[in-house]
């Protein structure tokens, strides 16, 4: 069965959600990953949306933003952003999902400034809730495109901290828990080494070579001793994903479906 890279990424992200987990769901692709997980292997997962929504069931319509009306109808709680952040600060969020523009070998994410903060070459949108999710959730999952300019040795600016400069950095910084547990790209899945906390290649997507992953990474990336091939999405996973995003708006299946004048 054919699928797009984005579909593979969403399905891989969905598989990281365990049943009964409380999930802090970020903008864009993570919203789909939560929906897929809920409808398949994690029916009891709970979703937190930073705009102030908690859901036990995924929304009935595709979301373009988490504040869309279908995400509020049938929610289990509508509240303030602060209340959800308070619960996350207590340690009640198992996994948080974010996207990014730049990430480094220790899983630190930059969504703020490329180049100097006083004269940026690119001004990115900023943290939103991403820095909070990275600081306060138990596990952080990052989804982004795999390019040499994006996967760099050291980010220009830490918006959302992974493991900082390596082992024990989070503890020294005073962060209570957490760290980047997976980076899902269009080429591979990267995970931190238990000792060094440096991201290494855990699994490679079907049809992608080891050399290609290395060539597209901005540091001398190591390969896990038990590296595997990412299992392709099953028919069941794709059916569920396509029922949530029938026109492939987020997964680039066809035209976006949005009329542009």
């Amino acid at each position: 069965m054919e699928y797009t890279t984005e579909e593979l990424m969403v399905v891989a992200a969905a598989r990281e959600i365990q049943n009964h987990e409380v999930v802090f769901v970020g903008m864009r692709l993570p919203m789909l990953a939560f929906g897929v997980a809920k409808k398949l292997h994690a029916p009891n997962a709970v979703g937190f949306f930073e705009c102030g929504i908690v859901r036990d069931e995924p929304s009935e319509e595709l979301l373009y933003t988490m504040g869309d009306p279908p995400n509020i109808a049938g929610a289990s709680w509508c509240t303030s952003t602060n209340h959800l952040m308070f619960l996350m600060q207590q340690g009640l969020i198992d996994i948080g999902f974010i996207g990014g523009a730049q990430i480094d070998k220790y899983g630190n994410v930059n969504t703020s400034y490329l180049g100097d903060i006083n004269q940026p070459t690119v001004k990115l949108p900023g943290s939103g809730g991403a820095a909070d999710i990275a600081c306060l959730s138990k596990r952080l999952l990052v989804i982004m495109s795999h390019e040499k300019r994006r996967l760099v040795d050291k980010v220009d600016y830490i918006t959302s901290p992974g493991f900082g400069s390596g082992q024990n950095w989070r503890k020294h910084s005073g962060l209570p828990r957490g760290g980047t547990s997976s980076l899902i790209t269009n080429l591979a899945i990267l995970k931190p080494d238990d000792e060094t906390k440096e991201l290494h290649i855990q699994s490679i997507h079907p049809g992608v070579s080891e050399d290609k992953v290395k060539d597209h990474t901005g540091w001398d990336i190591q390969i896990s001793p038990n590296v595997s091939s990412t299992p392709p999405p099953t028919k069941e996973e794709l059916d569920v994903l396509r029922s949530i995003d029938p026109r492939g708006f987020w997964t680039k299946r066809k035209q976006t479906g949005v009329k542009l004048q």
């Binding site: 600060q89 943290s127 820095a131 600081c135 306060l136 910084s173 962060l175």
Partner: peptide, 9 residues
């Protein structure tokens, strides 16, 4: 708060 510790914000 405990958020933002270690960040460049």
């Amino acid at each position: 708060t405990k958020t933002l510790l270690g960040t460049d914000l």
